[in-house]
Structure formats: C-alpha cells, structure tokens
C-alpha cells in the first residue's frame, strides 16, 4: 500500500502517480478540501481518501475504486465512466453530473442537482438529495433512501429515479410511475452493491412523461387549437 500525504505532496504528484499505476492500493491523507483529488483514474486501482475533499473528486473516473472517508464538494465523480466511487459523508452540488457508468454511493446527503444530466451511471444516496436532482437525466438509476427536495427529475429523459422518502415536488415532465418486478430487481441489486440497507418495496419510481422531448407533428393542430391559434 502506498500513502500520499497532501500536506507534503502536491496534488499533481499525487494524481500523476495514480494515473501511472496499473494496480495497487493507495491511501491519501490530509486532503484538506483540495480540488480534483484522485481525478482521472483509469485502471483497477483501489484508493482511500481519509478526510474531506473539494471539487471534482474522482472526476472522469474509470475502472478503479475510490473511497472517501469524509465529505465532498461540487462535482463528486462528475463524468465517471465505470468503476466505483463511495463516500461515507455528504456530497454537495452536482454529484455524479453527466456520469456515463459505474456506481456512485453517497452514504450521507447529496446537495442540489445530484445526477444532473446523468448518462448511465447508477447513484445510490443513503440520505436526502437536494433540489433539481436528476435534472435532464438521460440514463441510469438514481436511488434515494431519504427524501428529495423540490423539482425532482426536471426535464428528465430515460433515467429512472427511485425515492424511499418524501418528494417535495416533481419538476417539469417528471411523473410517478408503477414499480414493476424489473424495478424491484434493479433496486435489490443496487442497494446490495451499495452496502446500504433498505427494502426495495418501500421505494416509489419517477421518470419521464415524455411530453417534452418528442415533438409530435401529428399533434400540431390540436396544440394550436389549444393555444387559440388554429386556422
């Protein structure tokens, strides 16, 4: 195991070493809120960060595992492609933004816009998510064991959102949908992989009503009539 102390090692030295490694176990201490810690990993390495990090921790992550024992600021695991990012504390804004794949686990709360524009990642949040989470989410699953703040899933495409607690309000074109057997299976798998504990039967499912992103030319007359402008 290799240990990096960010009180005495520069961020560039740390990330260069992580990028050069093809395997192994690494521990990072004294992150002190630094930005871009362990960003850009692309190998099956195992990284543990002891303490809280700043922006874009584990951004663009592929293959490996990053575990953060603390909190994270904006953009945790943004644009991750594969692998696993797991944080024991809270994450602030835009966790998992635009992420294409892999598993992001947030044991605590996530701030606003969690999973914004997510494109295939699975995100499991042990606590609550902030306002406008799942905004324009395109693919993947966002599983929330706690509550969701306002405008959940605004302008959502084909991502699935599961919430166990309350939902303050749904955003534009986001509706509640039935939970089928396949969704229970998805929940069981993701909760199991996250290491958190919840009964899949307690979740409600939310997704797109598909009224925003399909322009249906056949409907144009009806829409014009509704707007009072039909010829």
């Amino acid at each position: 195991m290799t240990t990096f102390d960010l009180a005495s090692t520069t961020l560039r030295e740390l990330n260069s070493a992580l990028h050069a490694a093809s395997d192994g176990t690494f521990t990072i201490v004294n992150p002190q809120g630094a930005h871009a810690v362990a960003a850009g990993i692309d190998s099956p390495i195992d990284v543990t960060v002891r303490g809280s990090v700043g922006y874009y921790c584990a951004g663009m992550h592929q293959q490996g595992t990053v575990r953060i024992e603390g909190n994270a600021s904006t953009g945790l695991a943004e644009n991750m492609m594969s692998g696993r990012v797991h944080i024991t504390g809270n994450a602030t804004m835009s966790a998992g933004a635009t992420a294409h794949g892999g598993l992001l686990v947030i044991e605590g709360n996530a701030g606003s816009r969690c999973g914004i524009s997510m494109k295939g990642v699975d995100i499991v949040v042990g606590g609550n998510v902030g306002h406008m989470s799942g905004f324009m989410a395109q693919a993947g699953n966002l599983v929330v064991l706690g509550d969701a703040a306002g405008d959940l899933g605004d302008s959502i495409y084909e991502a699935e959102i599961f919430v166990r607690g309350s939902v303050e309000s749904l955003g534009a074109d986001c509706i509640e949908k039935d939970v089928e057997a396949e969704h229970l299976a998805t929940l069981e798998r993701l909760i199991g992989e996250s290491g958190l504990d919840a009964d899949p039967a307690e979740f409600r499912r939310y997704g797109s009503a598909r009224t925003l992103y399909n322009f249906a030319v056949d409907d144009i007359d009806a829409e014009l009539a509704a707007a009072g402008g039909a010829s």
């Binding site: 809120g33 600021s73 809270n90």
Partner: peptide, 18 residues
C-alpha cells in the same frame, strides 16, 4: 469552499452542512 474551513481548530468535531 470547505478548504477555507479545513484549517480551523477542532474542525474534526464540527457539524458541516450546505
């Protein structure tokens, strides 16, 4: 940003929120 708070005394015992 948190990094401004990270160097305060007893920060390990702090309740931290957004």
């Amino acid at each position: 940003e948190y990094r401004a708070i990270a160097r305060l005394p007893d920060v390990g015992d702090a309740e931290i929120f957004e």
